[in-house]
Simulated assay, not measured.
Amino acid sequence: MNVLTGRQLGRALLARQHLLARTGREPAELIHHLGGLQAQAVPQPPYLGLLSRIDGFTPERLTALLEQRAAVRIALQRGTIHLVTAEDCLTLRPLLQPVLDRALRSTYGARLAGLDLDALGAEARALVEAEPRTFQQLGALLAATRPDRDPAALAQAARCLLPLVQVPPRGIWDRSGPAAHTTAEAWLGRPLERAPALDDLVLRYLAAFGPATAADLQKWSGLSRLGPVLTRLASRLVAFRDEHGRVLHDLPEAPRPDPDTPAPVRLLAPFDNLLLSHADRTRVLPEEYRGRVMTQNGIVLGTLLVDGLVAGTWRLTGGQEVAVRPFTALRPADEQAARAEAQRVLDFAGGGGTVRFEPVDGER
């Protein structure tokens, strides 16, 4: 079984994520390919995630998808909010229901003990389909008939029991709004898929994030016990090992570029799934930098990629400034490329503004 180095894995991942070369694909097509974009923070991450991957991308192209109900924001992988196409919402939500069930039991189980969850779900569905509600509003309404229960726990139970989408203007670039919810069925006018195939989910993950281990797949999705699925798919896959001896699964025809393929400087969006979709993130995120990118309170900062690896962080503030903070001194060519990427973000945000490089630690 051939061994793939960390650099080979990194180049394969960047190629599949369109971070070696930007694509001209339509936003909806790329969102589908990526299995969605993490979108719990609003509104920047999905927009900036597409900007880093698509030539000529403008905010209006994603805003139109949200307003036309061709894309939605809904809790999916790992129980977190993702922006996905309407079709993927109807397919992925049933497949990932076990993730939401587990979250409900582990976080709110004691506060919901003895509660008729079927009745709660039916009442919550009627309330949000009558008009979109925030969780604060929904919890208060559900608690009116259950005065001995915690309204926040009731609202979160509804979030796990029902496929709740956040309706615009929530998540719209330069607008946003309160996180008001209705059901996917009501918003899209179609039912959830009755019997989506877990095999398809696994193959799609490998197309966008492979080669990968079973643990990687489980980290991305939040699902458990996926080893048997990979075993069932073995005749359609190829296998490798990484430098630690772990078995990697992949699609035979998926790109695995030469490890010496140049990787251009890129600015990754905050919460980019490139950093969140493997149990072993070191193919793109050196372990020594992990704590500087992923904070203790669950924030994942925007990151600077140099030669295919995280080499710093960045942030867009008020649409007027991009501040880049390298972890080590950059070569002049890499700093120039990072400055060009930062200017590209400013142009996307409306033009004007400044690019500022913060000093490397120890250089103040």
Results as ranks from 00 to 15, higher is better:
Leu316Asn: 03
Arg315Asn: 05
Leu309Lys: 06
Val284Thr: 10
Glu287Phe: 11
Leu305His: 01
Val284Asp: 01
Leu305Lys: 02
Ala279Tyr: 07
Gln296Asp: 07
Asp307Asn: 07
Gln296Ile: 13
Asn297Ala: 11
Glu288Lys: 15
Glu288Met: 12
Val293Ser: 02
Ile299Thr: 09
Arg292Pro: 08
Glu321Thr: 15
Thr282Pro: 09
Arg292Gly: 10
Ala311Gln: 09
Arg292Trp: 12
Trp314Gly: 02
Thr303Lys: 02
Gly318Lys: 11
Val284Gln: 01
Thr317Ile: 14
Arg290Leu: 11
Thr303Pro: 08
Ala323Leu: 14
Val322Arg: 11
Gly298Leu: 02
Arg281Thr: 10
Val300His: 04
Gly298Asp: 02
Thr303Gly: 03
Val306Phe: 02
Glu321Leu: 14
Gly298Pro: 10
Val293Asn: 03
Gly318Pro: 13
Val284His: 00
Ala311Trp: 04
Val322Gly: 06
Val310Arg: 00
Thr313Cys: 02
Arg290Pro: 13
Gly319Phe: 08
Arg292Val: 06
Thr317Asp: 15
Asp280Lys: 01
Gly302Gln: 07
Glu321Tyr: 13
Thr303Gln: 02
Glu287Gln: 15
Ile299Val: 10
Thr282Met: 03
Arg292Ile: 06
Arg292Cys: 05
Thr282Cys: 06
Thr282Phe: 03
Arg281Val: 06
Leu309Asn: 00
Ala323Glu: 15
Ala279Glu: 12
Val284Leu: 04
Gly318Ser: 11
Arg283Glu: 02
Gly298Glu: 05
Arg281Asp: 08
Thr313Ile: 09
Gln320Thr: 14
Arg315Tyr: 05
Ala323Gln: 15
Val300Phe: 07
Asn297Tyr: 06
Glu288Asp: 15
Leu305Gln: 03
Arg281Pro: 11
Gly298Phe: 03
Val322Phe: 09
Arg283Pro: 02
Pro286Met: 10
Tyr289His: 15
Tyr289Thr: 12
Gly302Ile: 11
Arg283Tyr: 00
Val300Asp: 01
Leu316Met: 08
Ala311Asp: 08
Ala311Cys: 06
Gln296Tyr: 05
Val293Leu: 07
Val306Gly: 01
Gly319Met: 04
Asp280Arg: 05
Pro286Trp: 08
Gly308Glu: 00
Gly302Val: 10
Gly308Gln: 01
Val324Gln: 07
Leu316Phe: 05
Arg315Met: 08
Gly302Trp: 09
Gly318Trp: 07
Leu285Val: 13
Asn297Thr: 14
Met294Gln: 15
Gly312Ala: 04
Asn297Glu: 10
Ala279Pro: 10
Glu321Trp: 12
Val322Asn: 06
Pro286Tyr: 09
Gln296Ala: 14
Gly312Cys: 07
Glu287Ala: 15
Met294Thr: 12
Val322Ser: 07
Glu287Leu: 14
Glu321His: 13
Gly291Ala: 14
Thr295Leu: 13
Ile299Lys: 03
Gly298Thr: 08
Ala323Pro: 12
Val284Ile: 12
Met294Arg: 14
Glu287Met: 13
Val310Ser: 00
Pro286Glu: 09
Arg283Gln: 03
Asn297Ser: 13
Met294Leu: 14
Ala279Gln: 09
Gly291Arg: 15
Thr313Glu: 00
Leu301Gln: 11
Leu316Cys: 04
Thr303Ile: 08
Leu304Asn: 06
Tyr289Gly: 09
Gly319Thr: 12
Val300Trp: 04
Thr303Val: 11
Gly302Thr: 08
Trp314Ala: 04
Thr295Val: 09
Thr313His: 01
Ala323Ile: 14
Arg281Asn: 04
